[in-house]
Design a protein around this nucleic acid. Sequence first.
RNA 1: GACCCCUUCGUCUAGUGGUUAGGACACCGCCCUUUCACGGCGGCAACACGGGUUCGACUCCCGUAGGGGUCGCCA
Length: 483
Amino acid sequence: MTDKPVRVRIAPSPTGYLHVGTARSALFNYLFARHYDGKFLVRVEDTDVERSKKEYIEPILDAMRWLGLDWDEDIIYQSERLDHYRGFVDRLLESGHAYRCFCTREELEAERERAKAEKQPARYSGRCRRLNSQELREKLASNQPYTVRIAVPEGTTSYDDMVSGTLSRHSNDIEDFIIARSDGSATYNFAVVIDDHEMGITHVIRGNDHITNTFKQIQIYRAFEWPEPQFGHVPLILRPDKKKVSKRLGDRDVGEYRRDGIVPEAMFNYLCLLGWNPKTEQEIYRREELIERFTEANFNASNAIFDEEKLIAFNKAHIVRMTDHDLAVLVAPMLVEADVTTKYWLETRWEYLRHVISLLKERVRTLHDFVGLGGYFFSFDYTYEEKADAKQFTPEAAELLTELADRFEALDEFSHDSLEAALKGLAGQRELKPGKLIHPTRLAVSGMSIGPGLYDLLQALGKPIVVERMRKAVEYIQKKHRT
RNA sequence: GACCCCUUCGUCUAGUGGUUAGGACACCGCCCUUUCACGGCGGCAACACGGGUUCGACUCCCGUAGGGGUCGCCA
């Protein structure tokens, strides 16, 4: 697919957060680089000194690390290369590929207004391109400020896009854009080309909102007679119908999803399948599988809507596949954060945590559910689910729970099988269906009507806690029915 | 408005001239089951429209419509 070693990059602006669209572009570049044993680089586009603060890049790098998008080489900061770009502007001026433009912002603004009013395309007239040497000398002598514009050659510019095939645009629609501001600093499109060239970028994979820029950037490559990288414009990620946007997972910042309990493996997998396809019916993949399968051939061309429900489905699938230990590492701080238990308690009972996770992992949508559905494994300060309470905690249940608690207490071995035998034994004697005991017991020891298999649950909790909670429930029921 | 990109179930998608148009998420049934979840089975549901080309179009071409992007001395 290429003769040179692949070098790609992601070039985020320091906005303070990683947008899912940028994340996916980064992901595609990462996958592409890893697949072809190339390099994946990061360049920070912070030329706008006004609004770029160093700290705004940290959350972005953080989110990338979280996703596992590890980059190669040092991060390049455009802000540190500002002076470097100037010489290149001069070269283009000398070679005649660029010219000075003395139009003021006001004049340009007026021109645009007029064009808009006349429903004409809003493009620069090219007035200063036609300045003769006499006029030029006068303007220069009078110290008029100027910008530098590229002189786009007449004709059509074409390139072969990795996603959309051959794309072309007429020079009139590219326009003589500014490459250097009146203070001499390089503009975005110019700096990008210098950087990509000097970084040896071979492939530029980015959102299709950059197609217009690509035609501009190609002008610069050609003016310098530099080799052009291959460009690939992937479809955009759209948000769902605003009315249907969900409450919890409404934002598109990757960090937000992380905070919402999405595991990086799921985000990685899901994002990859938005605009790219492995051409198989399999959808759940590990990172290594995606690296192996990823090629530029299977890009999709149409925009995609980010479906949070499907992300959740991927999240469930990945959580089930993760090891209990890896999940425990992620869940432990959440339990502490939720004040369900303490860091110390967990550290001394890591095995228990892992076991709890193994019981819960199949029923969880996000990491937070481990807390929401498993708090009772760590503390007894829950209340009984209202509906279940009304249904299960009858006077009869109190009597049964009392008897069952006694039998449980008498057990030598507190195991899945012995618990089942004890419970079914009682049910048999009373000629009751096991459910008559199971449901109140579950409610008593967990406060919930849903959860892991009861015997697993009881065994995990252990005899003292089970018996205590059952007797507490009996007291509760008796009190409830007395009043 | 100009220029460009895109168009298969609600959503993500497979499909490259002849298919009962496949899968996944969601949804609805049923099964499994002490609950929930998992799993299994089944169902609902799509080729935007109009012209061509062709023996034959979801597939190719042209229009139309719709969606999206871009049009800064921002990136």
